[in-house]
C-alpha cells in the first residue's frame, strides 16, 4: 500500500435490512489519515464498518480496505492482521480480566504468548488502565470498558483503526481523554483511522477529513477545514475606538453587520470579496484602525445540519420516501 493509495475504497456498496436501506450505493475513496464518519443514528456507519471487516455481506457493490476485499476469505483473514476494530457496544471476553483479554486477542492476531503479554501491558499503560487491568471485567465502569476496547484494537499495532463511537457512554473527563488518545494515534502515530460518531465535536477534534452519511448515502465528503470554509462569508472585526463613524459608514454602504460589542462587529462580505481589503479601506476613510480581523468559521455542526436539511428538502421535492 503506497501513501497515496486509498485506504478504503467503496463502489456502489449497498446493504439492506428488509425494507430499510442501511447503505444505498455508497461510492467513495478515503485517503490515509484520520477520517470521521459522521451521521445521525441509523445512518449506516456501523454497517459500513462491519462490511469493511467482512462481518456483513453486502447486497451489492464492493468494498476494499487497503486493497483487500473483505468478502474474500483469505483477504479477510489477512486484512484483520492490520486492522484494529473497536466495536460500539459492550464487548467482553467472559471470565477474563483486562490483561487476559488483550493477551488472548493478541495471540489470536498471531503473536506468541510473551509478545502478547508484553504488548498487552504496553497498550494498557497507553490507554491508562492501571490496576484495573487485573479486575474481572464485570466490575469495569463504562470508561474502563472503552479504554480496554481501544487497547485490544491496538494490541497488534494495526495500521488501520476502525473506531465505532469511541466516546459512547463516557463522562466529560473520560471523553476528553479518549479523544486525546485518538488524536495522538491519528496525528502522532500515523494510523489511518475511520472514526464513526454522531458527535460532531469528536470528529472535529480528532479528524482532518469527514464523510457525512445520512440514510445510507454520502452527503458530503472532504477536509473539515474546507467543509467549514464553504460558508465562510462572515468576518469578525475589531476596530479602535471610537467606532461610531465606522458604523455610520457601513450603514451608508448598506453592509450586513451585527454589533457584538462597542468595538466588535460581525460583518458579512459579498461573494468574491477579498478578505479584509475593503474593510481596511473603509476603516481608513473613517479615521480608525482595524485591530483584529478573523473569519468566522461555520462549525461542523452548522454544516452538518445544513447538509441534512438540504438532503431532506431534496428528498421531499423528489417525493422519495424518507
Amino acid at each position: 500500500m503506497t501513501d497515496s493509495a486509498p485506504v478504503i475504497a467503496l463502489q456502489q456498496l449497498a446493504k439492506h435490512y428488509g425494507q430499510v436501506r442501511a447503505l444505498d450505493g455508497l461510492s467513495m475513496e478515503l485517503a490515509p489519515g484520520p477520517t470521521g464518519l459522521l451521521g445521525p443514528n441509523g445512518a449506516g456507519k456501523t454497517t459500513l464498518l462491519k462490511l469493511l471487516l467482512g462481518q456483513l455481506v453486502p447486497d451489492a457493490g464492493t468494498a476494499r480496505i487497503a486493497g483487500r476485499n473483505p468478502q474474500d476469505r483469505d483477504d479477510r483473514l489477512n486484512l484483520r492482521r492490520f486492522v484494529g476494530y473497536m466495536p460500539e457496544n459492550d464487548c467482553l471476553l467472559p471470565r477474563h480480566n483486562g490483561v487476559e483479554t488483550v493477551i488472548t486477542l493478541g495471540q489470536l492476531s498471531g503473536m506468541n504468548y510473551h509478545d502478547a503479554m508484553k504488548r498487552a501491558h504496553e497498550v494498557l499503560d497507553y490507554v491508562g488502565l492501571d490496576e484495573a487491568r487485573y479486575r474481572q471485567m464485570e466490575e469495569y465502569s463504562s470508561g474502563m470498558k472503552q479504554r480496554l476496547k481501544l487497547a485490544q484494537a491496538l494490541v497488534h499495532d494495526p495500521d488501520i483503526l476502525l473506531l465505532d463511537e469511541p466516546t459512547s457512554g463516557l463522562d466529560p473527563k473520560g471523553r476528553r481523554h479518549m479523544l486525546e488518545l485518538v488524536h495522538d494515534l491519528g496525528y502522532q502515530q500515523g494510523k489511518s483511522i475511520l472514526l464513526c460518531s454522531h458527535l460532531l465535536r469528536d470528529v472535529e477534534k480528532t479528524c482532518s477529513t469527514v464523510v457525512v452519511l445520512h440514510k445510507g448515502k454520502v452527503l458530503h465528503t472532504g477536509a473539515i477545514n474546507v467543509l467549514t470554509h464553504d460558508n465562510e462569508t462572515w468576518m469578525r472585526v475589531e476596530v479602535a475606538s471610537p467606532a461610531e463613524r465606522f458604523v455610520r459608514r457601513m450603514e451608508e454602504l448598506d453592509m450586513a453587520f451585527e454589533r457584538e460589542a462597542a468595538d466588535r462587529f460581525r460583518i458579512q462580505l459579498e461573494d468574491g470579496a477579498e478578505y479584509g481589503d475593503e474593510l481596511f479601506d473603509l476603516a481608513l476613510t473613517c479615521r480608525t484602525a482595524i485591530t483584529r480581523l478573523a473569519p468566522i468559521r461555520s462549525s461542523l455542526e452548522e454544516v452538518f445540519l445544513a447538509t441534512l436539511e438540504a438532503d431532506e428538502r431534496a428528498r421531499k421535492e423528489e417525493g422519495a420516501p424518507s
Binding site: 484483520r80 492482521r81 466495536p87 459492550d90 464487548c91 471476553l93 467472559p94 498471531g110
Partner: peptide, 22 residues
C-alpha cells in the same frame, strides 16, 4: 455450556471475529 452462550451474551464474538480466525 457457557462457551457460546456467554460469548453471545457478552458480545465477545465481535472481538474474536475481528481477528484473523475462521
Amino acid at each position: 455450556s457457557g462457551l457460546f452462550a456467554e460469548d453471545r451474551q457478552c458480545g465477545a464474538h465481535q472481538l474474536y471475529f475481528a481477528r484473523p480466525i475462521t
